[in-house]
């Protein structure tokens, strides 16, 4: 365990050093990403005003809070994508990783976690600028803040596991990007990314309960800006742990099968 901790610390440190070198590129990337929530924010604020000040309990101010926190959660959701797996295999990066006495999943978790540290630091002034512009209304509680700080990392881990499972399909097919597009469409609709979960039709909310997506997006945001009860906060964290476990089990099974396929043909 001590050695694993040392590996995580060293890898995260390298990621921080590397990504700080690319701070300008990271910043431009984050600024470019803001267009999406601002469009959602403007649309929903307009609808709220047209409906007498609020829609589904959300006012212009609470929409602003939701979509400003959205920008951080979106960044926490960025992990090694399935697109990268093909590149990773073709360029021999996976073969090199297999020769090291540590599972490549650890490297991905540690490296992207280090990158997130840089992202959070860069996000703070961006969030301040957006707050000045859109005047968010939020009344966070201490349990909410604490849950949010844990939930953004929970979201990161769930999404890492899910996209690892998808990416590993590259062991059998070169058409993973098509599957990822389908995954992405469902995720967009049922995660709280496009619209807060409370505004979804009841059938969609029901469907979302059986999927991992809201725990990667809607739940962390609502933990901070919503009015979740302590029981709901704890339930949310428990659901995240459950989905991390399911994702990890999926990774284990697919990895074992995938290794059989990969070491049969190699690269």
């Amino acid at each position: 365990m001590r050695h694993l901790f040392d590996f995580y610390r060293t890898t995260m440190k390298l990621a921080v050093i590397t990504q700080l070198q690319y701070r300008t590129a990271n910043y431009f990337y984050m600024i470019g990403m803001i267009a999406e929530p601002i469009i959602y924010l403007v649309v929903w604020s307009t609808i709220a005003r047209a409906q007498g000040g609020s829609v589904g309990g959300y006012t212009s101010g609470s929409f602003a809070a939701y979509y400003i926190v959205w920008t951080l959660v979106r960044n926490m959701n960025i992990v090694f994508t399935p697109y990268g797996w093909e590149w990773r295999i073709q360029h021999g990066e996976l073969s090199a990783a297999l020769l090291r006495p540590i599972h490549p999943l650890h490297r991905d978790i540690a490296y992207f976690a280090g990158w997130k540290v840089v992202v959070i630091i860069l996000w703070l002034p961006l969030a301040a600028a957006l707050a000045l512009l859109f005047r968010p209304e939020l009344h966070p509680t201490w349990p909410g803040i604490l849950t949010f700080l844990l939930a953004i990392w929970g979201a990161y881990l769930i999404r890492t596991m899910l996209l690892w499972c998808l990416g590993m399909l590259t062991f059998w097919t070169t058409r993973v990007s098509a599957i990822y597009e389908l995954f992405f469409a469902v995720e967009l609709l049922l995660s709280g990314r496009l619209v807060p979960m409370a505004l979804l039709p009841s059938w969609a909310q029901h469907l979302a309960r059986y999927m991992p997506f809201q725990w990667t997006f809607g739940f962390p945001i609502e933990a901070l800006v919503g009015q979740l009860t302590p029981a709901q906060l704890l339930m949310g964290l428990a659901m995240q742990i459950l989905w991390i476990g399911i994702g990890l089990a999926g990774v284990g099974v697919i990895w074992r099968q995938g290794m059989r396929a990969f070491t049969a043909v190699g690269n």
Partner: peptide, 17 residues
Amino acid sequence: QWDLPALDSFELQRAIY
């Protein structure tokens, strides 16, 4: 690591092994 001095990559090897 392409963007870092080799010493940093060596440090990672230390942790891996």
